[in-house]
Design a protein around this nucleic acid. Structure first.
Length: 249
DNA sequence: CCGGTTGTTCAGCG
DNA sequence: GCGCTGAACAACCG
């Protein structure tokens, strides 16, 4: 389920419980989830792929990882990791990572790094990119400190849209292209959000899981690239690989 | 039925 | 301490 836009959808769906008091807690989490009992939800927030349930003095951080899921006012066979009950319904989280964050969230999260956040800062993202000249684009787009909320689909689609080869080293990519990349990552994330709500996300994929380049009509490459070794779909013909700068070994 | 995956952390090693 | 690798987690789809 979980790239940034999917977590924004979760936040929107959870809105019905904002301001509500937790009247029952259960779940198989090893964390002390009982402390949520009787607490009022101050707000639901997201930071990239993190779903944050904010109470007065602490926050529950849910990360759905690869396999996590949630249900609102519905159940399934599996035991929830966390179940929160309110007077108007309940929300269950399954097979997710759950942690508590104490105190002020602003001390923990850089909101300007979240591609879905109103405080998203393109310039800061570009500066972070430039600070890691040896990093490959395919890895940079999965770096949650630079593009919090970006995942493997976003990575593949953004690089394909901008005709940038995933194996480009940041140092070799012109600054203007880096700036475009940062902007387009947010733009695509909001397209993702809209299409996911319409249940048409998959049909809008241009590269991810595709076998043919629709621009060149030749086979796309599928390879596990970069430090992250994640599945990458790309076209050798139309996705530009910039020449290495002499200084960059 | 098996293989693969929209993700992250951590132990172990050289 | 570093970077790299593999394991672990765990659910669903095709």
């Amino acid at each position: 389920m979980p790239e940034g836009p999917s977590i924004v959808i979760l936040k929107e769906e959870a809105q019905i419980f904002e301001g509500k008091k937790v009247i029952a807690v259960s779940g198989n989490s090893k964390e002390a989830i009982d402390r949520c009992q009787g607490q009022k939800v101050i707000a639901f927030k997201t930071w990239g792929k993190h779903f944050l349930i904010c109470f007065q003095d602490f926050t529950v951080r849910i990360h759905l990882m690869l396999f996590g899921s949630y249900l609102i006012n519905a159940t399934k066979e599996a035991m929830p990791r966390l179940s929160l009950n309110f007077d108007n319904g309940f929300i269950n989280f399954y097979s997710c990572s759950l942690k508590f964050i104490e105190g002020d969230l602003d001390a923990v999260y850089d909101w300007s790094a979240d591609i879905m956040n109103d405080h998203w800062d393109v310039k800061k993202a570009v500066a972070k990119l430039k600070a890691q000249p040896a990093t490959l684009l395919c890895d940079a787009l999965l770096d949650q400190h630079i593009f919090s909320g970006s995942g493997n689909i976003v990575k593949n689609e953004v690089l394909y849209r901008l005709r940038l080869h995933p194996l480009n080293k940041i140092a070799d990519v012109p600054p203007r292209a880096l700036s475009k990349l940062a902007k387009e990552t947010r733009t695509y994330a909001f397209d993702f959000l809209r299409w996911k709500k319409e249940f048409t996300l998959k049909e809008h994929w241009l590269a991810h899981t595709k076998s043919i380049c629709t621009r060149c009509n030749i086979p796309l490459h599928k390879a596990y690239l970069g430090k992250t070794k994640r599945r990458t779909f790309y076209c050798d013909n139309c996705q530009q690989l910039f020449k290495p700068k002499p200084s960059s070994s």
